[in-house]
Amino acid sequence: MAHDVPIGDDSIRLGQFLKLASLLDSGSDAKSAIADGQVTVNGDVEVRRGRQLHPGDTVTIGGESARVTQG
């Protein structure tokens, strides 16, 4: 089950969201995990750290999921 993570804008970059949602600790961790294909967005592997996420998108890594919500 994904937990909801509100964002203040209309979108957020994947690397930033991973840190905001506490799925990863740092930007370097996010960069590595994304490059290694460990991160999915809405069920699809995403390798672009700058991918824009919008409310309703769900990000999963290592069995943990977070859903982008409007803050």
Results as ranks from 00 to 15, higher is better:
Met1Glu: 03
Ala2Phe: 06
Ala2Gly: 01
His3Cys: 00
His3Thr: 12
His3Ile: 10
Asp4Val: 08
Val5Glu: 05
Val5Phe: 04
Val5Arg: 06
Pro6Met: 00
Pro6His: 00
Ile7Ser: 03
Ile7Lys: 01
Ile7Arg: 00
Ile7Asn: 01
Gly8Trp: 09
Gly8Pro: 04
Asp9Trp: 05
Asp9Lys: 14
Asp10Phe: 11
Asp10Ile: 08
Asp10Asn: 12
Ser11Cys: 15
Ser11Met: 11
Ile12Ser: 05
Arg13Tyr: 07
Arg13Ile: 03
Arg13Met: 11
Leu14Met: 13
Gly15His: 06
Gly15Lys: 07
Gln16Met: 12
Gln16Val: 10
Gln16Arg: 13
Gln16Gly: 14
Gln16His: 14
Phe17Glu: 01
Phe17Thr: 00
Phe17Gly: 01
Leu18Arg: 10
Lys19Ala: 09
Leu20Gly: 05
Leu20Tyr: 07
Ala21Gln: 07
Ser22Ala: 13
Leu23Tyr: 08
Leu23Pro: 03
Leu24Gln: 09
Leu24Asp: 10
Leu24Pro: 02
Leu24Arg: 15
Asp25Phe: 13
Asp25Trp: 11
Asp25Met: 13
Ser26Gln: 09
Gly27Leu: 01
Gly27Gln: 11
Ser28Gln: 12
Ser28Trp: 07
Ser28Pro: 09
Asp29Ile: 08
Asp29Glu: 15
Ala30Asp: 06
Lys31Asn: 04
Ser32His: 12
Ser32Pro: 09
Ala33Ile: 02
Ala33Cys: 00
Ala33Val: 04
Ile34Pro: 04
Ile34Gly: 05
Ala35Leu: 10
Ala35Asp: 15
Ala35Lys: 15
Ala35Val: 10
Ala35Met: 09
Asp36Ser: 14
Asp36Gly: 06
Gly37Lys: 06
Gly37Arg: 12
Gly37Ser: 06
Gly37Ala: 01
Gly37Glu: 01
Gln38Val: 06
Gln38Trp: 08
Thr40Val: 05
Val41Asp: 02
Val41Gln: 00
Asn42Phe: 11
Asn42Pro: 06
Asn42Val: 02
Gly43Asn: 12
Gly43Val: 02
Gly43Ile: 03
Asp44Gln: 11
Asp44Glu: 15
Asp44Leu: 12
Asp44Ser: 15
Asp44His: 09
Val45Met: 07
Val45Lys: 05
Glu46Gly: 11
Val47Phe: 10
Val47Gln: 10
Arg48Asn: 13
Arg48Asp: 10
Arg48Gln: 12
Arg48Lys: 14
Arg48Trp: 08
Arg49Leu: 06
Arg49Cys: 02
Gly50Tyr: 11
Arg51Asn: 03
Gln52Pro: 10
Gln52Asn: 11
Leu53His: 02
Leu53Val: 04
Leu53Tyr: 07
His54Leu: 12
His54Arg: 15
Pro55Ser: 06
Pro55His: 02
Gly56Tyr: 10
Gly56Pro: 09
Gly56Leu: 01
Asp57Ile: 14
Asp57Gly: 13
Thr58Asp: 04
Thr58Trp: 01
Thr58Arg: 12
Val59Tyr: 01
Val59Ile: 09
Thr60Phe: 02
Gly62Glu: 08
Gly62Met: 12
Gly63Phe: 05
Glu64Val: 11
Glu64Pro: 00
Glu64Thr: 14
Ser65Gln: 04
Ala66Trp: 08
Ala66Asp: 00
Ala66Val: 08
Arg67Lys: 13
Arg67Phe: 02
Arg67Glu: 03
Val68Phe: 04
Thr69Pro: 02
Gln70Trp: 05
Gln70Asn: 12
Gly71Leu: 06
Gly71Ile: 08
Gly71His: 07
